[in-house]
Write a protein that binds this DNA or RNA. Structure first.
Length: 103
DNA sequence: GTTGTGACTACCA
DNA sequence: ATGGTAGCCACAA
């Protein structure tokens, strides 16, 4: 088992603890699990998640408060609608500040 | 080894 | 606000 595998597990564990209606950034998530500067790695972990995973991957957004997909992509539309279903409001492509962020 | 890549960030002009 | 750049670091080729 590679060291990065345990990081992966911790990231997934933290991810699953994000409550509905809240979101977290890649960088913050990385920092939460004790690995600052691993924002990209977090993204990489999410990218490799199985499609049937029940993890709330959609609650992870970038540091600008937006979705890290191009606006015309299917993934963008999916993530956004999932968040809006949880009551998260978007303003100008960004998550509205009042609801944005956990902890 | 080396190189290129990315669901990222922080800075700076 | 916006665009470019430079760190960042695991991973795949």
């Amino acid at each position: 088992m590679k060291p990065s595998d345990s990081i992966r597990l911790i990231i997934i564990q933290q991810l699953s603890s994000i409550p509905k209606g809240k979101v977290c950034t890649y960088g913050d998530l990385a920092k939460l699990v004790g690995y600052p500067n691993h924002a990209r790695f977090v993204g990489s972990v999410l990218r490799h998640l199985p499609n049937d995973s029940r993890l709330p991957w959609h609650r992870v957004i970038n540091g600008n408060g937006g979705i890290s997909f191009t606006e015309d992509s299917d993934a963008y539309k999916l993530q956004r609608s999932l968040l809006e279903d949880e009551g998260i409001v978007f303003v100008n492509g960004r998550v509205k500040l009042a609801i944005y962020r956990m902890r």
